[in-house]
Nucleic acid binder design. Structure first.
Lengths: 318, 318
DNA sequence: TATTGATGTGGTATCGATAACATACCTTTG
DNA sequence: CAAAGGTATGTTATCGATACCACATCAATA
């Protein structure tokens, strides 16, 4: 028992005893077993986070934000990838719940029925991120993808563009992608512009290469398209490079915009107009709220929706 | 006990009992507690992996390879980032060992003395990746960064370039970066070319922006540089874009090459010559070897070094 | 001096699963 | 028909920590 105390911060053990214990610990190479500790104290020190993908996506930054925020708390992150499918998300939630996380961070608001049940009955704080779900489970840290894309359309319309095209992935699994497309369509309607041209290409997350291929099919079908908006900066970059490869001038012959403000969008030539959405901050805030709910007063825990900011970043591509 | 059996695959429980149990489980929303299971069975089902960073780096692909390979085995990945420092690695190893992982995958061969002790005394399989450490702890899945960079130099020298420059990060913390620089210097020596020009810029992982800034300082100091090799494709991309912004022709005025074969290198314009190193495969193979060591016969476990392939991919930038 | 409180240490039960063994019942086989 | 073997289920101890309570010691206070 004294050993257990000696190894915890801030418990009262005399200096002499602690030193003796530490010496023995070093000598033996003893390492505490947290599985046993978790079982006894009913605190696992785990936090679960589930993101669609971590490769070439904004979610890597969100994961990073979570990790950084968690670092000082001694909580361990359990990270999982859904590949943009709700089924895989359900499986991940189930697998992670076996580890008894003290809180969970999700991406988006689309979950299977079973997943919702699991989440609700687990009795731990849940934070949904990156969207504003219609029926939040608990807490939310995100923004409206629809409005953000709408703002981009309006910004470009103000510059005089009228014939808009949109490039996104093929399936509706990527709910944020779908929301952006909806926002695109709606904004164009509201502005009374000619209907937007939609090209769906590739399984989300759509790659640089697929962005290039998509813009080709866009131009084949609607050669007079003036501005192409893409579901992400990577596809926008692919589209941009493909256009340049074909000798088109950007933005004179065609304007291109992306979403997410990846580093590549800022430093490619020409720079890509995009929407900055503070991916890192989403992770940070989600983690912060989770920590508050876990460590803080039960009463203090309020179900709140945190709106994270976004802004259009205009560059040379439009 | 029968419940425990019913919830495991491949244990013998009568169909009727299993159904009754499953019904109750569904009814109650019961979820197995793996902390307790781990304690009892002395198998945690955890595998630890430590990478320098997961943002904009090849290691995201390696992590992905590990995750994919682990998926079917029921092992959970504990992922940590070192930010390229051995001290943080040591802390991570310590924190993760409290969770009693059944195996651990590391990046590189540079560890603190204490970390080496911990790793050796843990009695679990260890796989070092991405390098060929001089003193391997256990197993290795990697390649020689020195040779790979040397091959790139030789390939370009064969095309007629003679005045080479190298762009990398400022500190030696990034051991792979240092090894690549060493390979660069040595290859140039071997070829009897004029000494390479070295620019160190920014804390690893060096960004697109820093690549651009580095090439500027390279050209200020050595305006006649013919070919610039960069520690990674991202910095190469930044350098390329900066050169184009300044109206230079690539590769006529200056050739640029990177390392890592990121997607951006393939699809930017002009495409960037680089070294492809199968990041995903490194993760896959490391995980496979770990699984074999964990699940397989103790005798079958041999300390082996797996060389992963690399190849120079020539594109328009050289 | 007796009482109180602070401090440090030790004893015991417990967390929730599984390993290992025990038992009951049924089927097969010589 | 008895012995042997297979199948399904139950019993008990245990994994390694911590919660909770008990107790010893010593200083401060009434």
């Amino acid at each position: 028992m004294t050993v257990s105390r000696a190894l915890k911060e801030g418990s009262r053990v005399s200096k002499a005893t602690r030193e003796k214990i530490m010496a023995a610990v070093n000598d033996l190479g003893y390492v505490l077993d947290q599985s046993a500790g978790s079982l006894s104290s009913r605190k696992t020190g785990f936090v679960a986070a589930i993101v669609p993908s971590i490769n070439n996506s904004n979610f890597a930054d969100t994961a990073r934000g979570i990790t950084d925020e968690l670092e000082s708390t001694g909580l361990q992150l359990l990270l999982g990838y859904t590949d943009y499918t709700a089924e895989k998300e359900e499986k991940l939630i189930e697998a992670m719940f076996r580890r008894r996380p003290e809180g969970i961070i999700l991406t988006g608001g689309a979950h299977t029925e079973r997943a919702r049940r699991l989440l609700k009955s687990a009795g731990i704080p849940v934070v949904e991120t990156w969207e504003l779900p219609a029926k939040p489970i608990d807490q939310v840290v995100g923004f409206s993808n629809e409005e953000a894309m709408g703002l981009l359309v309006k910004t470009l319309a103000r510059k005089g563009y009228r014939k808009f095209g949109y490039i996104g992935g093929t399936t509706s699994r990527d709910t944020r992608g779908s929301q952006r497309r909806e926002g695109f369509i709606r904004a164009i309607e509201e502005l009374g512009l000619p209907p937007g041209r939609l090209v769906s290409f590739g399984v989300p997350p759509i790659s640089i290469e697929q962005g290039g291929q998509a813009v080709v099919s866009m131009l084949e079908r609607w050669p007079d398209t003036e501005a192409v908006l893409c579901v992400s900066d990577l596809s926008a970059f692919g589209a941009l490079m493909e256009c340049k490869r074909r000798g088109m001038r950007v933005p004179q012959d065609i304007a291109i915009a992306g979403f997410g403000d990846y580093e590549v969008a800022a430093f490619c030539h020409p720079g890509i107009t995009t929407v900055n959405v503070d991916c890192y901050g989403i992770g940070q805030q989600a983690a912060r709220r989770l920590i508050q709910s876990i460590r803080g007063d039960e009463k203090q825990r309020r179900q709140e929706i945190v709106l994270t900011g976004y802004r259009v970043v205009e560059r040379e591509s439009t």
